[in-house]
Design a protein around this nucleic acid. Structure first.
Lengths: 208, 208
DNA sequence: GTCTATAAATGGATAGAC
DNA sequence: GTCTATCCATTTATAGAC
């Protein structure tokens, strides 16, 4: 049951952080929810930041997998669509991290470095997909434009849930789909006519 | 000196919130920095959230002014450029609000409503400028596209500073200019050829 | 591994003197 | 208006029994 308690602490902490926001959840709250003692919790983790660090490791692994490039062949629109899904679902599952991103990163140099690495990796991955599309003739843009678009893709993807929350959006599953469409909209103007109309159809169907 | 102390509390709180992040600044810290007693601070403001609410009112007034549409005539690229500057400088001056946006809004229904109103107003303003450009023949996009672009403009503008911070960007003045360019990049593909090249030149010069 | 009990520190806020 | 003194609640974290 030892491993189990440790795992249950992480699972419960994640659920509570996501539901209430990390700043509102104390170690005592987590222990209460699990019906274990605070002392027990501190037997398994040094402190709250230690719990966050382990949750971050889970997140990191998940996001690294989502950013894996699909295959050796040139990527198509559907590959982007799928990859965006994986990324947004990962962000959703660890949304507490994004809600208070700067605050959480400010407390740990290690997390700062690791999150910056993920952003760089996401940037590389995005640009690689764009170059694949360009190589296949489906996309047309200068190298400089590609870099700029990739950056905007990262910004919108990273902060879309926060934007939806600030806007007062209630239906969170709809918000995710809306976010995916907004990212696609960034790419759309650089697509060849055929792919653009294909994308427009996909997006239309997706939001209903 | 009464009015003065009140004003100095707000000024100092703003500076400290921006420098250290709102969660790290307590009412006692503010009083210390001002070399007044905690009791004195509480004579002027009911609590910390009261201070934040008054800072928000300042911010709101400033942002409302920045979002004012330039004039009756059709807007040109330079008008957008200027307006973006005003908006980014306002965000910069009240960056504590954006750093912990969801957390701060979660504590006050009134701030939630007022921030949502500003987002709606920014959306309207952005779309109005786009329609002006379209009417002048400088921009070409469907009504649906205009809406989508406007949303992405808001997301990038709202969270650009957070993105730069997460990315580890140190030079903050450069970060602001970079943010303005990234927003312009969103609009660029929908501009007429003449305006696009004009914009490309402007952006190039701007980042040096 | 888990509990109880509690220490130590902090932050928010107020009472009452001046 | 401003200060001193202090209270109360919360949070983190640990000691020591079982």
């Amino acid at each position: 049951m030892a491993r189990d308690t440790r795992r249950r602490i992480l699972d419960t902490a994640l659920a509570m952080f996501n539901a209430q926001g990390e700043p509102h959840v104390t170690t005592n709250h987590i222990a209460d929810e699990l019906e274990i003692s605070p002392g027990n919790l501190y037997y398994h983790f040094r402190n709250k930041d230690d719990i966050i660090e382990h949750l971050f490791a889970r997140y990191e692994e998940r996001m690294d997998a989502a950013l894996e490039l699909p295959s050796a062949r040139l990527p198509g629109l559907e590959d982007i669509w799928l990859q965006l899904h994986l990324v947004f679902e990962c962000i959703w599952d660890y949304r507490f991290l994004y809600r208070d991103l700067i605050e959480i990163l400010s407390r740990s140099r290690r997390l700062r470095l690791r999150f910056a690495r993920i952003l760089r990796r996401a940037d590389d991955s995005t640009q690689a997909v764009f170059q694949g599309l360009a190589q296949a003739g489906a996309m047309r843009a200068t190298a400089q434009e590609l870099g700029g678009i990739a950056t905007n893709v990262l910004v919108v993807a990273t902060f879309w849930l926060n934007y939806a929350a600030a806007r007062g959006e209630k239906d969170e599953q709809l918000a995710i789909r809306h976010g995916i469409v907004q990212v696609m909209l960034l790419i759309s103007p650089f697509l060849r006519e055929a792919e653009r109309t294909q994308l427009a159809t996909l997006m239309q169907a997706y939001l209903d």
